[in-house]
Simulated scan of single mutants.
Amino acid sequence: MSELHHYLELNDPVAMVWRKGNSQDPFTDRNDLLPVINGIITLLEIPSSQHKVHIDGMVEINQELYNQTSALLPEQFLVNYANGSIQFHPQHEGATFSCKYKGKGLILYPASRIYAMVRRHPDVVKTLQEIIDEAHTKLNDTHLAMDQVEQAIREAHDASAKASMAADWASQAAANATDAAHNASHAVDSTKLLFKPAVSDMKELLRTHLNPQVGWTVQTYKDGIRYRYDGKDWVPIDIFGKNIQLVNEHTDGLMSSSEHSKLKSIPLETKERVIVFCLPSYLFQGVQNIVARFPFKGEIVGIKAICGVPGDTDSEIIIEKSMNMKDWHNIMSRPVQLDAFSHYDDGQAVVDRATVYAGDCFRLHVVKQGLNIQNVTVEMIIKI
């Protein structure tokens, strides 16, 4: 459960709702899509400085580096982990960014400390709490007036209901008579059977009887089903000839012989399986969120990688394995490497823990992030 901290012993204190960051009360994964206003984005929660803030295609700098340069480059941003604000280069004004981070909690300010200029000349200033209180008062007055109007409407409705009740009784009597005649006609239409010559199948039935009438009944001798036209659709009502023989390579049955031969040609098992990790948009350093579970015992025989947009610098990726989703181990002695300006990996990845057991889980860990690399796909080939 998140902890609530109050600051300043006043009637309306500032409150901070913090998460503990442990397994019982973990930090929350956040992905805020926000615009840059006056060179700043204010996150919806306070970010964890331990897990950092990730923005695709950009690099975070620390306060010490910013103090030395006193300026940000277009691809840089500065995070204030005390209040959750992010500073950007002026050229990004008005742009929208997706900010990924671990949320620690919120800083809550009371309405009594937020003010607004209500009128100028003379200046009239009110707090947000005062405005809310006035709104509640006016709403209460409005509700009282609405209650009186609704009471008058109810009385008018009661009078109208009594006047129309006699007319409803007369209309109901006429409707009952009409329904009785309709039900009698419907009973005749729903039970009569007008038999027509049998056809081969449903296609021939629809082609032969273009303008059927209610009650027409036709049997398809290929499957023994008898259909009746109900005025809208041909509806199956029964089936004859349940002794249709089973299919074989030479004779049609419950399926055609060609379909039977095709079904038998499909292999029942394959030799290899592939786990595919797709990382859309920009690549970011660290453990990725995608986790894949493999249900068979086998051996890893190859790992390949490709990217839609190559990076300006090299990227390195390793694959980690776990049996319990808690303890993760690197299975590679040489990582998958995507060289700068290349769409494909260098083919030099080495796996030193190739054995896979049923139930093993796998995930990607980006140990080196190439600048501007996008849309990375990693394939792990497993022989079973």
Rank of each mutant, 00 (worst) to 15 (best):
A135N: 10
A116V: 13
T251Y: 11
C361I: 13
D158N: 11
T251K: 06
I107M: 08
I290P: 09
T127C: 09
V218C: 04
L8M: 00
S160E: 09
A358T: 05
I46Y: 00
E130Y: 08
K126L: 14
S257L: 03
W18M: 14
I384F: 14
S257T: 07
V36R: 03
L210M: 05
V247C: 07
M332R: 02
N375M: 14
T251F: 05
M202I: 13
K232N: 08
K192P: 00
D25F: 00
V214Y: 01
H250K: 10
D223K: 07
S70E: 06
P110I: 03
Y7E: 02
K232V: 12
N372E: 05
A292D: 03
M16S: 08
G103I: 07
P35Y: 12
C99W: 15
A180Y: 10
K242A: 13
V309Q: 07
K192L: 14
H51C: 15
L193N: 06
V367I: 15
H250R: 15
R120C: 14
Q369D: 02
V274G: 08
M332G: 02
R273D: 06
S261F: 02
D29I: 13
K297Q: 09
G215H: 01
Q369S: 09
S2G: 06
D179R: 10
E130G: 04
N176C: 06
W234H: 00
A15I: 05
I153D: 13
T191E: 15
V366K: 06
Q337R: 04
T217L: 15
Y115C: 07
Q213F: 10
